[in-house]
């Protein structure tokens, strides 16, 4: 089942054409990975899916991005509500400089939740596989956690607003291998309830955790296929050259 669809998407930073005619689908309760050399547009595309690119001045977008068949670039779209449905976890862990508890409840409180916050914190921290490590220090400043713990806190924070889709923008690039492993296991768990899109510069990671993979090069989506197919028998010879490490 299709959760999101990208149709003829083009994006310019000023006069620089950063995304060219992108067409692809994001399937429900699957993990979709974007790979490619740095600067290829994979992060730009993922930031189109929750309109984070709106924050950058002189960005111009053409084309359509559908979420449950509704174009998120339509005029009548409520961007705030969109970002609630399509959550995001960033490259560098970015917890707010407040307590662990407050980090989790920040989103739900904004959206009007007043009761059952403690239960919510416990539930989401458990979902993010962080509960056992922090259950006694919920009042402590989140900045004191390790990098890997901070990133799982950011995931829990994202889960707390109950999104449909979670976007991961290179979530492990600032983490050590052990923390990376934990996050990968977590993503595998999460896809049972959420639709996941992940940008990664690490091909093995894409191969390990994703169901579908898109290969980007210079703003173009060169190939989009099932991960198994991409990594064993890609349609596009360029993809094969990248996968096998002959280039990039």
């Amino acid at each position: 089942m299709v959760k999101m669809e990208v149709h003829d998407l083009n994006l310019w930073y000023g006069s620089f054409h950063a995304l060219k005619d992108i067409n692809m689908k994001v399937y429900k309760h699957k993990v979709t990975a974007f790979i490619g050399p740095s600067g290829c547009g994979k992060s730009t595309l993922i930031r189109c899916l929750n309109r984070m690119n709106d924050l950058i001045s002189n960005v111009h977008v053409e084309g359509r991005v559908l979420l449950d068949d509704k174009n998120i670039y339509d005029k009548d779209i409520d961007v705030v509500n969109l970002r609630k449905r399509v959550g995001m976890v960033f490259q560098k862990p970015n917890p707010f400089p407040m307590s662990i508890h407050e980090n989790i409840t920040y989103g739900p409180k904004l959206h009007g939740k007043k009761k059952g916050l403690d239960e919510l914190v416990e539930e989401k921290l458990k979902d993010a596989a962080l509960w056992s490590e922090v259950k006694d220090i919920l009042g402590q400043n989140a900045m004191d956690l390790s990098g890997g713990q901070q990133q799982r806190l950011c995931i829990a924070r994202c889960l707390a607003v109950e999104p449909d889709v979670i976007l991961f923008d290179e979530p492990c690039s600032a983490l050590d291998p052990i923390s990376t492993g934990k996050i990968e296991d977590l993503i595998n768990e999460l896809k049972r309830h959420y639709t996941i899109v992940i940008v990664t510069h690490n091909m093995q990671q894409a191969a390990r955790i994703s169901d579908y993979t898109g290969y980007f090069y210079l703003g173009e989506l060169k190939e989009f296929n099932k991960t198994k197919k991409i990594f064993t028998n890609p349609d596009n010879p360029e993809t094969e050259r990248y996968i096998t490490g002959k280039f990039g």
């Binding site: 924050l55 705030v80 509500n81 959550g87 970015n94 707010f96 400089p97 407040m98 920040y106 904004l110």
Partner: peptide, 27 residues
């Protein structure tokens, strides 16, 4: 105030003003 705080807040569905009042100014 790091840009990441603001982005994190907006990505959770906060409005710009909410991000200012609850994250940026306290930071």
């Amino acid at each position: 105030v790091p840009r990441a705080y603001k982005e994190g807040s907006l990505a959770l569905g906060a409005t710009h003003w909410e991000s200012i009042a609850r994250i940026i100014v306290p930071s």
